[in-house]
Amino acid sequence: MRGPGRLQAESRLWGYLFLLGLLALWEVLARAEMVNTLLFPRVSLILTYLGKLLTAGDILAQVAISLARSLSAYLIAALFAISLGIVMGYYRVVYEVVEPFMEMLRPMPIVALIPVIILFLGLGWQMKVFIIFLACVWPILLNTIDGVRGIDAVLVHTARTLGASPMQLLRYVILPAALPVIVTGLRISVATSLILMVISEMIGGMNGIGFFILNAQRKMRVLDMFAGIIILGGIGYLFNFLFRLASNRLIHWHLGMTRLTRR
């Protein structure tokens, strides 16, 4: 291993030790009753409780409900935003006409719309899916528009000159050329979908992991609360990981290309 690489691995090791030290400090402080253990129970207690909760399985049902909501909303948002974004990016007129409306709607904190949407859709899954959908659309839409507008005009003209049909143009030129930018939007929306999943379940929910965590806090079941938060963190981590895997496969040619040009 080269010098800097080893140095980095070494300092990362220190980082993990630091993290372990922090957790150990929590454990010691809780054991010595120097923090309020009603609010912050020992780490070891939380972890064993988490194990019990996971093997009991009830919590997994809550997680499944939440994931079904966020995933379906995310997929619909992706489909909708990419199609709309391609149209808006490709046809200048559409973009120029719709742009001021987007400027008006975009700064609106989506959360403020939750009560409005509860009025129309009630407290069920439709409300949550719609909220998550709304929030996820923006990053994907804006990135798709950017991506399509940024395509080298020569590519499009060449394909047209060579007699590409509109479908071929879309499939072989526009989509691949815009994909790296679109993927950025898709990645941002992964985090957004989880955030809005939790918020919508906290504000208007009767089940799901977000409701589980807030409800545990309200009933002062602190172990449940911390365990729920850890599970949620695990979901966030897993989603990021899966997304990186998928996007690397999807745009591996792009990553390879930028690496080449950088050299």
Binding site: A191, L194, I195, M197, V198, I199, M202, G210, I213, L214, A216, Q217, M225, G228, I229, L232, G233, G236, Y237, F239, N240
Partner: peptide
């Protein structure tokens, strides 16, 4: 970082 922020509200 991967933890959705609203999860911190109860804490």
């Amino acid at each position: 970082r991967p933890l959705p922020t609203p999860a911190m509200i109860p804490i």
